[in-house]
Amino acid sequence: MSLTDQLMTDMKVAMKGHDKVGLSVIRMLKSALMNKKIEVGHDLTTTEEQQVVVSQMKQQKDSLVEFQNGHRDDLVAQTKEQMAVLDKYMPQQLSESAIRQLVQQTATDIGAESKADFGKLMKAVMAKTKSQADGSVVNQIVKEVLS
């Protein structure tokens, strides 16, 4: 079942269950998927769909940080609820140890040894992980490996 089909099914369940938060998040995600489809000009692949979900989750995390800094507890709670719904559609994430192993292997493969190779190594690792790893976690591990 494609993500779009899953969203349609979940939308019906949310409507019947009067789940306003769930319905709002599903509509937001459907809209983001449709915008991406229009942008690329073809039906989205599974990888592209996953990238859209990861992007939406990143936006929610960024919003959460801003709301916490602004002491907006009402919006913090609402954003956490939205993130919980969105988490159901997130692709399986790699563990930190798996990311570390991938970074070390990639560094060996491309010959990255110093901090000057940071950008090259980040690009190579992110291409391999696609949407299975958070960029900030990869960034931190790459810095540790290159230091």
Rank of each mutant, 00 (worst) to 15 (best):
M1D: 11
S2Y: 09
L3D: 00
T4H: 01
T4V: 13
T4P: 05
M8Y: 01
D10E: 06
M11T: 06
M11Q: 12
V13C: 10
A14H: 02
K16S: 04
G17K: 04
H18M: 15
H18S: 14
H18C: 15
L23T: 06
S24W: 03
S24F: 09
V25W: 09
R27G: 13
R27N: 03
R27Q: 08
R27D: 10
M28Y: 07
M28F: 03
L29S: 07
L29F: 14
L29G: 01
S31A: 14
L33Y: 09
K36A: 07
K37A: 05
K37Q: 15
K37I: 07
E39Q: 15
H42E: 13
D43S: 13
L44E: 04
Q50E: 12
Q50W: 11
Q50C: 12
V52W: 07
V53G: 08
V54L: 11
M57C: 11
K61I: 12
D62C: 14
D62F: 09
D62V: 14
S63F: 15
L64P: 01
L64K: 00
V65L: 14
R72T: 01
R72F: 03
R72C: 02
D73F: 14
D74T: 07
L75Y: 05
T79P: 01
Q82K: 15
M83D: 08
M83A: 06
V85N: 05
V85Q: 07
K88S: 12
Y89I: 05
P91T: 07
Q92R: 08
Q93S: 13
S97L: 12
R100V: 06
Q101R: 09
Q105E: 13
T106P: 10
A112G: 10
E113M: 02
E113V: 04
E113K: 15
A116Y: 13
L121H: 00
K123L: 09
A124S: 06
M126V: 06
M126G: 04
A127L: 07
T129N: 03
K130A: 07
K130Q: 13
A133P: 13
D134C: 02
D134T: 08
G135R: 11
S136C: 04
V137R: 10
V137T: 11
I141G: 09
V142E: 05
K143N: 15
K143Y: 11
K143E: 15
E144K: 01
E144V: 08
V145H: 05
V145Y: 05
L146T: 05
